[in-house]
Design a protein around this nucleic acid. Structure first.
Lengths: 202, 202
DNA sequence: CGTTTTTCATACCGGTCAGTATATAGATAT
DNA sequence: ATATCTATATACTGACCGGTATGAAAAACG
């Protein structure tokens, strides 16, 4: 094991990579992968292009690291939501968590995944595939949670876990579009309430 | 009134503007406004850049004309859906119409409006505003239709027309994201069935 | 016929894109 | 002190962006 605080050989870097990555995340979140230019990224990060390339590789690998940070910091509510005791509470935590995350006043509005996956410019195809893969993994977890709910008698007969999971994830993506379009948080809260009022009960 | 078939002075144009516009629409639909380059547009339209500029103005006005064509040809189901006798039938026609339109085999997947409004690159802001304005107009029509439904006793008490309209339009936008992500039409049909099964009945 | 008018094909414009070469600055190692 | 190593700042690369200048081609006019 290498000592983390061991002195390094060359000139020490003058910026904090974590803070720089957080700044990059905000730009990618607001603009999407292709909409974020290196000029805007480096300015927000407070570093120059050679520093960026030396520390983060290239634009694509910087984006992946930002996406990791996004999942870790901003999507942490998903994991805890899936641990809710009932299917309806899972849905409520996911909906309200998405709402709080995407309508906060400091961060950009909407969902970074939706923003970067919807645009499609032939190159940067692998970015899209990366996001779709992560979404598929998240969808799978939701299906499994609702299959468990079904076994526990938590869902009425006639309600398929797969269909219900797709229904919920579709509403969540719709919320991302609405939030990104600037719909007020209050109206989206109404929307969440409406959705929960219609939730199938056993 | 000028005779439409009157002979024109100069050299006649060698392409059909309607077909060229339809080709441009397909590119804008697939790539979004900013993702569509003039090179790709002119190649799909089968014309050169000077011809494009002479006939359609510039990229932005070409996009607006394509958007008009999109609304006229692809969104025509919306108008007829609003004329359905009950609120639930309005919802069903909108959902199934969106599904058929966005999952067809020839056209690009997903909704052109969502694709071009979600990306946000600081310039081309007016394109985004244009799309949001058209969406707001469409949303208003839906709210009015549900207000009428409420008056007609078509909606149960406790269901607000505005909230229900936002709920439905959110699902429609979620469907656009799902279809654009390549989710199979069969699964989206399941989703529509699920949504309709939960529809509030009087 | 020649003139006029419009379209078309080609080459070009300045600007921006992601990415990099080069040289200097700032630290450790000997 | 000197050598070594890494980060920085500046300026650059080739490719592409939206948009256009220019001149030839193709039709109607006289």
């Amino acid at each position: 094991m290498k000592n983390a605080s061991a002195p390094v050989r060359g000139r020490p870097r003058e910026f904090d990579p974590d803070k720089a990555l957080a700044a990059a995340l905000e730009i990618f979140w607001r603009r999407g992968y292709e909409g974020a230019s290196l000029a805007e990224l480096t300015e927000a990060m407070g570093i120059t292009k050679p520093s960026l390339y030396a520390c983060f590789g290239n634009k694509e690998s910087l984006f992946r690291k930002a996406l990791d940070l996004y999942e870790r910091d901003k999507l942490c509510y998903v994991k805890s939501a899936l641990e809710a005791p009932t299917a309806k509470e899972v849905a409520e935590r996911l909906l309200r968590g998405a709402l709080a995350m995407q309508c906060g006043s400091t961060d950009p509005k909407g969902c970074m995944g939706v923003i970067s996956s919807v645009a499609n410019t032939s190159h940067a195809e692998c970015i899209r595939e990366e996001i779709l893969a992560r979404r598929a993994s998240s969808d799978r977890a939701l299906v499994e949670r609702f299959e468990r709910a079904k076994e526990e008698g938590d869902l009425p007969p006639g309600v398929e876990p797969r269909a219900l999971a797709l229904y919920l994830s579709t509403i969540l993506q719709g919320i991302a579009v609405q939030a990104g379009s600037g719909v007020a948080e209050g109206r989206l809260t109404q929307l969440v309430d409406t959705t929960l009022a219609m939730w199938p009960s056993a």
